[in-house]
Design a protein around this nucleic acid. Structure first.
Lengths: 204, 204
DNA sequence: ACGTGACCATGACAGGTGTCACGGCCTTGG
DNA sequence: CCAAGGCCGTGACACCTGTCATGGTCACGT
């Protein structure tokens, strides 16, 4: 019997995944949580063999939750299950100690197999996504550039960004200009779009 | 036996929902599709009693699919099941002839009941969402303003927007300015964010 | 027929934005 | 030690944006 923990913020999806996996004879859902910061506590209490983690979650995101879970309950393998196949997410997930990475586009029948493979110590990675992740390397953005771009997501003006980050307006403009150049964009909004699509910015 | 059609672009979610509903004795999944433009054909072939439609789908979105389905197979009731609780979506869904509107945050157990209610002719609406939809009225944007804002989503410059919409740059600026004023924003990016959050722009 | 309002366009203007050059402070690594 | 590179800041400049005034066409409801 493989014991499972399921973490997904959408209750309907979470319950449906549980129902789907519960159909398998060798799988057993022992915990369900809706927030990233509930993962570790639930795992300690229910000691699952495999944890299915969504990337987009309130509290802390699935990537951070995977890191914490790795330290708190090393016996539990992590299988990331996410909506968006952003190449950057895969790298972050792997460096966070995840054993597998599956997008929600994959057929339902394959999920149970992915869980079994992860449980037996194998790595499960979406092949097309792995290719994308290899061709296009790491994020070219420096930490501050990512911060500034992140602050620019809500659409505020330079002054607003400078205010929230306690920076000079000139510095913000420089970081934005650099980020725009690196992403091949022509405006800050386009740069944000590119960065988000590639998973170079944190979820949210 | 209530016959069901499930439309969702994410294969995993679609399969999981099917598994969840299949557990009920009085429910039967007779068709699954991944694209909006496959809904009508599948419905004609399998003649379901209730169709669960996601709003975000490739091809045509769930709202348009609901309208087409309403005309092609009037005997089939429509229950929208969507990720984002944008107030504007609810209005559009209702005017498209949907009988119910459920967000994916709702508990899994309630879904089967929602399906049964819709099948028996009742309307099912998320109460909190209904309240939001009432307090904040229809979209204040005119058709062209919405078009321009939609074109501005990718982050292009005014010239680019004017090019794709075959408009003068001055006209684009005017429409953007008007949209910015109506949304209470200060920049176009912020206006886009507000409009998207309220469901005033088409999905995607 | 008339007013209203959406739509398109032009022109002009203040202010914001993106770019560049320059300098200074750090930490890292040869 | 010293170069390299990320980080922060200033200042200046061309360009783009957002706003406003103005005017024209068209469809509409009274």
């Amino acid at each position: 019997m493989i014991r499972l923990l399921i973490a997904d913020d959408q209750a309907l999806v979470r319950g449906a995944l549980a129902a789907l996996l519960q159909l398998e004879d060798d799988l057993e859902v022992v915990a369900e949580v809706a927030r990233g910061d509930e993962v570790v506590d639930a795992a300690i209490e229910s000691s699952p063999d495999v944890a299915l983690l969504d990337v987009e979650m309130p509290g802390i995101d699935g990537l951070a939750a995977a890191r914490l879970l790795r330290d708190a309950v090393p016996s539990c393998r992590v299988l990331m299950v996410t909506t968006f196949g952003r190449p950057g997410y895969l790298k972050q997930a792997m460096s966070a100690g995840a054993s597998g990475f599956v997008v929600k586009d994959t057929p339902a029948r394959q999920l149970a197999d992915a869980v079994r493979r992860v449980h037996s110590g194998l790595r499960v990675v979406d092949p097309t996504l792995a290719a994308e992740s290899l061709t296009q390397g790491d994020s070219p953005l420096t930490e501050r550039e990512a911060d500034v771009l992140q602050a620019a997501r809500s659409g505020g003006t330079v002054a607003a960004i400078a205010g929230t980050l306690f920076l000079s307006e000139g510095t913000v403009r420089n970081h934005l200009s650099s980020a725009i150049g690196k992403t091949g964009a022509r405006t800050r909004a386009e740069a944000v779009r590119v960065a988000v699509d590639n998973g170079w910015l944190l979820p949210h």
